[in-house]
Simulated assay, not measured.
Amino acid sequence: MARTSTKDPVVGPDAPMPPGYAFVRKGNVFITSRCRKAAYAEGRAVFVVAAGGRARGLRVPRGVLAAVLAAHGATRAARARAVAARDRRVEAGFRAALLALYPRAPAADVPRVVARATRKRSRRVGRCAALAAEPRARLAARAHLRHARTDYDALLRAGVPRADARARIAARVDALEREWGLRGEQQQPPPPPGRAAAAGPGRRRRRRHAAASAQAKTRTRQAAQAKTGALAEKKRQRRRASAAESAEKESRALVPELRAGGSDRPDDLDGLDDDDDDDDDYGTDATWTPSDDELDDVDWPLE
């Protein structure tokens, strides 16, 4: 009976390899998913190899892996054709939505907007499944107009803040949209998923609140780092004191034996008092304190 549970046992990379198993590196969904299904169908276990809290791959039966690799090679061309056809459908759908929204869009600009917005693995709006086709098309068109038809990039290079640069060229972008025949009297396009709308009279107030919140997080993190550093330093001091005390006791115990053997100076004791605790279990991460710049990079709200 085929297994249906996906809660596979997790092992470390140094764990012994089960007899008859082989490692499959994470990254090829065709191989990993089919190895799982085939192993479950045979009632065999699949082990997830993880290190540092991240999955690195799978350990699967060798026979299963060999069959999946053979299928992978035999179907490579067909799968490539299927992916290309799917990409063409995505691009065609996006192009249709763009032209429906902007019927007078210049023929030279449409391919550029479509190609950039639908590029695979770019995380651009053309492939954002959380938005309908029309909002995606408008966001992509406005981005193209902003960069290709205004001095937006020049403002950014001159040091103008991003929000201010957008505000300066907003009217020009609106006018260009009308030239492209923007359908109907539509409002500003919705912000991408995960971003709050920035327009409106409360915009500056929200930005000040976000800045204050970021500063508060910075202070909290700095205080926590300082406390952690102080605790780690106390532990190191106790370890050094304990090591020194143990070394001294051992020295006192060894000195009579060495002197009984005819040594006037216990040269064999050299190094017993060396402080080797710098390489203790705490390492350096426990007392690491990031700089203000690094904290800003972590805590500052993304626009």
Rank of each mutant, 00 (worst) to 15 (best):
S122R: 09
G194A: 02
V49K: 00
P192R: 15
R79H: 07
H147Q: 07
K26T: 04
R123G: 08
P266Y: 10
V173R: 12
V173M: 13
R259M: 14
D109V: 04
M17I: 02
Q222H: 03
A2M: 10
A223Y: 03
A129D: 08
V64H: 08
L101G: 04
V24Y: 03
R79W: 09
R204G: 04
D292T: 14
D14I: 00
R142F: 06
R34L: 10
R195D: 03
R168T: 15
D285N: 10
L131K: 02
T220Y: 01
I169V: 15
V83H: 13
Q215R: 12
E233K: 08
G262Y: 13
Q222T: 04
A129M: 02
R183C: 03
A82Q: 15
R25W: 07
E303H: 09
R219Q: 12
P191C: 09
L101A: 13
P193S: 10
P201T: 07
V46I: 12
Y40D: 15
T75F: 06
L156V: 12
R34F: 05
V125Q: 08
Y21A: 02
R112T: 09
G12D: 12
R136L: 13
T228G: 06
D280Q: 09
P192M: 09
V173Y: 15
R206L: 09
R54A: 12
A80V: 08
A45F: 01
P161N: 13
L269W: 08
E248G: 01
